[in-house]
Design a protein around this nucleic acid. Structure first.
Length: 503
RNA sequence: GGCGCCAUCGUCUAGCCUGGUUUAGGACGCCGCCCUCUCAAGGCGGAGAUCACGGGUUCAAAUCCCGUUGGCGCCA
């Protein structure tokens, strides 16, 4: 294999499958994906399922679904369609399937004296911690198992004590690195303790697994949340101990700022919807979500707001990511979703809205061609008003159902106004006789009628609207009347005028 | 407790590296006007930031330096 001088970009998104894909995770995934696509690189999805009690396969599936919905396709990683299918050749992509690899490298560290077995029980560790706290000292492991003799070790082992493997952290020196978004960061080694690499169960800790995997998967850029910044020196130390110093030197880090809730604290369930799938259910468009997420911690110099997917890919730069945390603003997301809805073509819009219309019970499973066109016309009339796909059913229901509800206030104000019903009764036969029952034809009729009666347009339009739609707000009166068609319009006027509680 | 990171309108942010062109720009939201058959959308305009605070450096600082405070994160 002839390695080229410039390694192609390889990035990863490495979620812990302990829940859904949440907003913060989606943003991290998006930035990795954008960066990979921008540079023609590889985007890897790695499942960090070493939390044995909280990890579930359901979560894995939820994360894969969330990413797919957002349009974040990965080049390597588990497959969404089949559990056994895998893409890419640097797997396995589940950390729990890589245990032998972690064992191999921890053994290497053990043999080279760069790590050691620690037999301390959790009680001992706990005592150590409380003592440190009382003495106002940082609660770090005191290294008591660091220099155990072989005799001491076998004594512990015959006692049946389980051992974890700890890293021999250098007691002096400084570990530093250059971060693409944070610039230069430095940490004193003496402040770090001998942290655990491998738990007694043989399962690696986060730190260790990440290092082994990033090396083996030939990652070139680590793009992740800010919350991992202070973990980075530990990882660099492990890389170096493993003899991968050259590799880390070339590894670029980019620590993204956190996403906070409206109250400035870490985004959590308390703040309402936090999972990507929940936004899907609420009727958000994935394009809008992607656009909004991209602007959380990244911006262009001209502060552009709306981007197509390709626009994002061609303009995205890690260097332009901000350092300060950002607060997730649902209001702006909602606005942006409306923008995307308005940009959608009519056919596409109906297609997107269909599941929500069906869910509301307004559309049957199978549609005839005529019915399809009817829905398309209805939806098109309300498209510019919808901010969410879930708005669509309640916006079009009066056109779809004949037993649409009559809004009481509207009836009171408009239909019960003096003369309103009389006007409707007079218009009914004439509308029925109207040959040009199009928006333009209806409009002309209504305006002529107003002139003839010597009243304002509104005095004609408003009663007609309430009589045929049950409310005062809706699409353009003439346009929806055309869509409804003459028979329905006449029937509705008839029904309204005959209603006992209106006259 | 230690260490680290961050700090521009309510919110997302531009500008900061390479001080003066900034009476600090854009977007969401808010307010008003216009358009109009209603509601939206759209157009126009407005309010909203002593650039966290305090010291320096400089003829000149949001921009450079030091300190303070606050928020957040990590370590357990």
């Amino acid at each position: 294999m002839s390695d080229s001088k410039i390694p192609s970009v390889r990035v990863r998104f490495a979620p812990s499958p302990t829940g859904f894909l949440h907003i913060g995770g989606a943003r991290t995934a998006l930035f990795n994906w954008l960066f990979a696509r921008r540079h023609g690189g590889i985007f890897i999805l790695r499942i960090e399922d070493t939390d044995e009690v909280r990890s579930t396969e359901d979560s894995v599936q939820a994360i894969l679904r969330g990413m797919s919905w957002l349009g974040l396709d990965w080049d390597e990683g588990p497959s969404l369609s089949s559990k056994d299918e895998v893409r890419g050749s640097s797997g396995p992509y589940y950390q729990m399937q890589r245990l032998d690899l972690y064992r191999k490298y921890s053994d290497q560290l053990l043999n080279e004296g760069k790590a050691y077995r620690c037999y301390c029980t959790s009680e001992e560790l706990e005592a150590m911690r409380t003592r440190a706290m009382l003495a106002k000292r940082p609660p770090k492991y005191d290294g008591r198992c660091r220099n155990l003799t072989a005799a001491q070790r076998s004594e512990k082992e015959t006692e049946g004590r389980k051992a974890v493997i700890r890293f021999k952290t250098p007691t002096d020196g400084v570990t530093q690195f250059d971060d693409i978004v944070r610039a230069h960061v430095a940490f004193e080694n003496s402040l770090l303790d001998d942290f655990v690499l491998l738990k007694a169960s043989g399962v690696p800790t986060y730190q260790f697994a990440v290092v082994v995997d990033d090396y083996l998967m030939k990652i070139t850029h680590v793009v992740r949340g800010d919350d991992h910044l202070s973990n980075t020196p530990r990882q660099i130390l492990i890389f170096e101990a493993l003899g991968w110093g050259e590799f880390v030197k070339g590894l670029k880090f980019a620590h993204l700022s956190m996403i906070l809730g409206p109250d400035g604290t870490r985004l959590s369930k308390r703040h309402g919807a936090t999972s990507v799938e929940e936004y899907e259910r609420q009727g958000y468009l994935p394009e809008a979500m992607m656009n909004y997420l991209a602007l959380l911690g990244w911006s262009t110099e001209d502060s552009q707001q709306l981007f197509t997917r390709d626009d994002l890919i061609s303009k995205f730069e890690l260097e332009r990511c901000g350092k300060s945390p950002s607060i997730f603003d649902p209001t702006k997301l909602l606005w942006m979703n409306g923008e995307y809805i308005r940009k959608t073509g009519p056919d596409e819009f109906l297609k997107r809205a269909t599941p929500f219309i069906k869910e509301a019970g307004l559309m049957s499973a199978e549609l005839t061609g005529d019915q399809f066109n009817y829905f398309k016309a209805c939806v098109a009339l309300e498209q510019e008003k919808a901010k969410l796909l879930t708005d669509v059913p309640k916006l079009i229901d009066f056109m779809v159902k004949d037993d649409y509800p009559m809004d009481e206030k509207s009836v009171e104000k408009v239909l019960k106004a003096p003369g309103a019903i009389g006007l409707l009764l007079e218009m009914k036969p004439r509308l029925d006789a109207l040959t040009d029952f199009t928006a333009a034809g209806i409009e002309k009729f209504c305006k002529d009628f107003a002139v003839e009666k010597g009243i304002k347009n509104g005095a004609v339009f408003h009663p007609l609207r309430v009589a045929t739609s049950g409310r005062q707000q809706g699409p353009s009166l003439f346009h929806y009347m055309e869509v409804l068609g003459k028979p329905k319009v006449i029937a509705r006027i008839q029904k309204t005028c005959a209603a006992p509680d209106i006259r």
